[in-house]
Nucleic acid binder design. Sequence first.
DNA 1: GCGACAG
DNA 2: ATCTTGTCGC
Length: 231
Amino acid sequence: MTTVRTPADWPVTEEEARAVQDGLRARVVLDEPGPPPGTGRITGVDVAYDDERDVVAAAAVVLDAATLDVVAEATAVGRVSFPYVPGLLAFREIPTVLAALDALPCPPGLVVCDGYGLAHPRRFGLASHLGVLTGLPAIGVAKNPFTFTHDEPDAPRGSTSPLLAKGGDGREEVGRALRTRHAVKPVFVSVGHRVSLDNACAHTLALTPAYRLPETTRRADALCRRALGAI
DNA sequence: GCGACAG
DNA sequence: ATCTTGTCGC
């Protein structure tokens, strides 16, 4: 398990953080379909916190996309680099997540984040940010609708309904509410970087053969908690 | 101005 | 995210 320091040039204020997002947003690539679902490797990343001790632990778990078997995993720990502010989650998680990805013995392939990508106040959520910094295809699968609205998808697994930005003049689809288990609360999928929304949803379905959340995030969640507890 | 708000 | 017991159901 590697230890990381927060970058010296990391934003300190919310204003600085928002400026970073505005500066990087243009680098997001949205015209690539991304790797075909069920092929190659998919890596889940997640983070656990201990604000008391100012410690954060991140995990990256690589799965074989076809079998969902664990191929590799790595963890990293560091200091909390930013407070939790809705819309600025990436600044809290990215330094440690990058370290965990760097510690992997093999290429990550597609990265699945616990949060949003394009579905973000400034269209640059965690999955897009991580994708731009690494160059890797990335998607976001969140457990809550954040500030977006959506109709309830039909009960069958695989049903979807558009995730829409509020207020906005036109119905801008920033992601999709996707039912991964029959009649169970949907997950919220959005594009991060170099992956189409259709493909992001297909990947998410391929990663949820048994539970609501993708195997990638379930595995990464369990690992970063274990890493945090081991400190 | 007030409330809502990924993790 | 995190604090936390039992409990209902496949």
